[in-house]
């Protein structure tokens, strides 16, 4: 009896995942079969005409996540190195705690802060500074009017949100690097930084990549904060100043107002694409992190 119940509970996890996959896939099927590949490549999202192409949302998801990783990764690795190698013991716990706390803040609170602090700050100071003072306004990445809600805002807020994930995984894999590796490097006359760069980081590399991918998984699926600052527009623009859309925010915005079955199905199809992408990213990330942790134990 006991065995039966715990087995059933354990079984519920694969079942839940399978059920989730099937439900989403079935609901997405009408849209996917109607638009086929153009669902991924077309930029036309017209609920009135019943024509749906999710390219802007896919593009926005990829760009905002990439931007977030570009900003967050060096910071997160820096924090992790500081905490595992340099920080005096009395500082280690509090700083680690503060960084972990970033992960505890609800997404909607980030969004609120984004709307009322980050977006105005971008509009008033950062965007004019980038385009006028640094004369980047002529490049395709920083052109156009500074509305505020933008791909840049989404990327920045995502960077803050994924930083604690990347940094905590990196810290763990750095801790898993054996002492002998460090001592060997120091014995060769390496400076502290040379030891880290030459011995510690290469050893932990695939674990750190795993951590970055876990962060990517978070960024791809993050919904509320992005929805509140990205501007929600179905357009692909090379400029980070322009508003955009992500798959998650598209669903969040339009789902409860979906006008007809095809619209619903199209949103489900967006969900299915998002599901597929995040599952792949997560599986790769887990495998990488596991491999390093096992190495460390062996």
């Amino acid at each position: 009896m006991y065995r039966f119940i715990t087995t059933a509970f354990a079984l519920s996890i694969p079942l839940l995942l399978v059920l989730l996959g099937i439900e989403v896939a079935v609901a997405a099927w009408p849209a996917l079969s109607a638009f086929k590949l153009s669902f991924l490549t077309s930029s036309r999202w017209d609920a009135v005409e019943g024509v749906f192409g999710a390219a802007p949302a896919i593009y926005g998801t990829l760009v905002s996540s990439a931007l977030a990783l570009v900003i967050a990764t060096p910071l997160a690795i820096g924090v992790a190195i500081f905490l595992s190698e340099f920080a005096p013991p009395w500082l280690r716990q509090p700083v680690a705690f503060l960084v972990d706390l970033l992960a505890a803040i609800p997404s909607v609170v980030y969004g609120l802060w984004g709307i009322f602090v980050l977006v105005p700050a971008l509009r008033e100071y950062v965007m004019p500074f980038l385009s006028d003072r640094l004369h980047l306004g002529n490049t395709p990445f920083f052109s156009g009017p500074a509305y505020g809600p933008s791909m840049l805002a989404a990327g920045l807020i995502l960077a803050i949100m994924v930083l604690p994930y990347i940094s905590s995984v990196t810290r763990e894999v750095l801790m898993a690097v054996p002492r002998s590796q460090r001592e060997a490097a120091l014995a060769l006359g390496a400076t502290r930084w040379e030891m880290i760069w030459g011995a510690v980081l290469p050893y932990a590399r695939s674990g750190i990549v795993g951590g970055i991918l876990l962060g990517l998984g978070r960024a791809l699926g993050e919904t509320m904060a992005v929805t509140m600052v990205i501007g929600n527009r179905h357009e692909i623009s090379s400029s980070l100043f322009a508003p955009g859309y992500t798959m998650a925010s598209l669903i969040a915005n339009e789902f409860s107002e979906a006008t007809n079955d095809m619209h619903l199905s199209a949103l489900m199809a967006v969900g299915a694409v998002l599901l597929l992408v995040t599952v792949i990213v997560n599986v790769i990330a887990r495998l990488l992190v596991w491999r390093v942790e096992r190495q460390g134990k062996a």
Binding site: L17, E23, G217, A248, L275
Partner: peptide, 19 residues
Amino acid sequence: LSDVLNGLPSIVVGIFAWQ
């Protein structure tokens, strides 16, 4: 799979629960 489930976007869980 429990790690995979843990990494799923919450919005996807939302539309699944709706469906």
